[in-house]
Nucleic acid binder design. Structure first.
Length: 156
DNA sequence: GCCAACGTTGGC
DNA sequence: GCCAACGTTGGC
């Protein structure tokens, strides 16, 4: 039995990894998440086939740039064991890995970027609990309800 | 590049 | 287990 499809928003800095990069490679291990809450969403919440809003952060026009899909169950992020990686975590061991990731697969680019600016204007419709529009939130992986998903894509 | 907001670390 | 110091995120 499969559980109902869930929805997520995942942030990426386009200078590092953009929706175009994802389109090029097809599938990408979402490495480098070093926040427990974000990890827990990937580890405990994500299922293969879930929908992902691919969000561009820390750039000229932050916003939702495309759609992706969760393409694997969570597994240990290999970069945590790699001493040469920026994401190396000396406190993590292969026996007890601290950081998990999922593979993310390209779905499609949006016809246009749905800018954060614009999303903020719909904050009321999206609800108080939405981490993207709640002040000061830096969460890089967050759940999106089916209603929020539908609403956001209706802006496209 | 600035800096507010937030999460984590570590001394006590 | 408190909390100050520090590091990071990410919009602007």
């Amino acid at each position: 039995m499969t559980a109902r499809k869930r929805y997520w928003l995942m942030k990426s800095e386009p200078d590092t990894f953009s929706i175009d990069d994802l389109e090029r490679v097809g599938v990408e291990p979402w490495n480098g998440v070093r926040n427990y809450q974000a990890r827990n969403f990937m580890r405990d919440g994500m299922q293969v086939g879930d929908g992902v809003l691919f969000y561009h952060s820390n750039c000229a026009v932050p916003g939702i740039a495309g759609l992706a899909k969760v393409n694997s169950r969570a597994y240990p992020d290999p970069t945590q064991f790699d001493k040469k990686s920026d994401y190396y975590d000396p406190k993590s061991t292969p026996e007890e890995p601290r950081w998990m990731l999922v593979d993310v697969a390209f779905d499609r680019k949006l016809k246009r970027i749905i800018a954060l600016d614009e999303i903020k204007q719909h904050a009321a419709a999206l609800g108080e609990g939405f981490a993207l529009t709640s002040r000061g939130s830096r969460l890089s992986v967050m759940p999106v309800t089916a209603a929020q998903w539908k609403y956001l894509l209706s802006l496209e």
